[in-house]
Amino acid sequence: MSNPARLISLIMGATCLCAGAAAYADDPFAAARQDMIREIEADVKRTSLQLDKEVLDPRVMQALATVPRHALVPESLQDVAYRNRPLPIGHGQTISQPYIVAIMTDLLKVAPDSKVLEVGTGSGYQAAILAELVEQVYTIEIIEALGTRARGHLEALGYENITVRIGDGYYGWEEQAPFDGIVVTAAASHIPPPLIEQLKNGGRMIVPVGSRFMVQQLVLVKKDSQGKVTTRQILPVRFVPLTGEH
């Protein structure tokens, strides 16, 4: 490791220590997590054209540097938990690729006082990242075994601002609506209109489209201050289908 890199990792390591809830003083995964962060940063730079930015929100990157991803994957996969790739977590589900989680979270543009809804808890990783950034995260998982496991893991990690509900996410979470941000990670044949209803004016919703192991595109739904809804379709990689000028 080069000196500046070591310095960065020391600083980041210190940040982790201060971040509280999820940090451990003698975290054997700290180095792997730092490598993951660097990889994400490099990927973001390469995709700056599509993402319209060179770097992601530092708060998002800090959240990624904090959450112990290894604690949310099956034990047998802990040593590869920080690779920048999706991993199978059983029940036919995956924990998303960290890079995709990073840009999805960034696209949500949440504030510390935001209230966020997640449909499809899965491993609980996305919820944990959000919990580092916002006041309250509500997350719904349809597969009971998965929801129970994620709830257990998140409680063990000390996340008190995440509420896990096991059930059908199609109608959102009426009692807590509206939300500043919504993440829909569960596969659906369409974006549920009730979720759009539960989005605050000025709020953002993000929906990854594709298969468990390959996200093909991200759909960002924006509701402006007047309540008008538009979507943006984002390719998570730098690729322009047309060559030359048109």
Partner: peptide, 16 residues
């Protein structure tokens, strides 16, 4: 039996 299937690909975001 418990969760409706709701297969409607391409449904308008405004659909009520």
């Amino acid at each position: 039996a418990r969760v409706p299937l709701r297969h409607a690909p391409g449904l308008s975001l405004h659909s009520s």
